[in-house]
Write a protein that binds this DNA or RNA. Structure first.
Lengths: 112, 112
DNA sequence: TTCATATTTCGATATTTATCGAAATATAAT
DNA sequence: ATTATATTTCGATAAATATCGAAATATGAA
């Protein structure tokens, strides 16, 4: 069993920073959504699609995608014309595990 | 039963930003720690104490405390000479609930 | 009141960063 | 090969922010 992935503070801060910009966070949530609704989007999130909801330009979105990837929050892959983004659940799990310690316990991980 | 506290993206981004600076995150973790070890610190976190572990000045720490409080991550209260900081578990719970949706499910909230 | 300690406010500065438009590159279609 | 669409790179700029030292304020002790 894997015990305590131990993400250090520096790394955690980097993840937080990646999610600290409203537009970038919105972009991230959009990727989450597109992954939840796998049936109609094939779990793919394309920059072109997301330009519609966010009112920032393509260069900025490209930049934000890179920051999310750099924080290991997502992975990106070129699929033909498009770039596809996917959530990296491992990183999210680690963050939630650390943050959860400060919570009320309602969100505490199942131990069995 | 309270359903879906609905923290909006703006607010969530603000929380993330508050935790995005390494020193401020370290400060936050220190507050968490001091609260976990209630017996020896009475759950209190004093600026003077924390100056030791972090190598930044008192003015900066004061500033960071204000940012954490402003994001509703902590509450502060003057207790005599000192200022005491406490974690606001509600905010943490909300953040974890939102982020958790993107995770693997391992950290998913108990439903019963 | 005067002193010592803890914290905050103020003003300044250096760095980071979000965003843009223009141009470059990649890929697929005609 | 040319065209159309998607994405990235580049260079610039305005705004935000972390941090500092000095001075101000608050609180408790002598």
């Amino acid at each position: 069993m894997v015990v305590c992935p131990a993400m250090d503070t520096k790394k955690l801060a980097k993840v937080m920073k990646a999610l600290s910009n409203p537009n970038r966070l919105e972009l991230y949530m959009e990727i989450v959504r597109s992954q939840e609704a796998r049936y109609d989007s094939a779990g793919e999130c394309r920059l072109a699609d997301v330009i519609g909801c966010l009112n920032i330009g393509a260069p900025t979105i490209s930049h934000h995608l890179k920051e999310l990837a750099n924080a290991d929050l997502i992975t990106t892959e070129r699929r033909g014309q498009h770039v596809v983004a996917r959530i990296n659940a491992t990183t999210v799990d680690e963050v939630v595990a650390i943050l959860g310690r400060a919570g009320s316990g309602l969100n505490r991980k199942r131990t069995r």
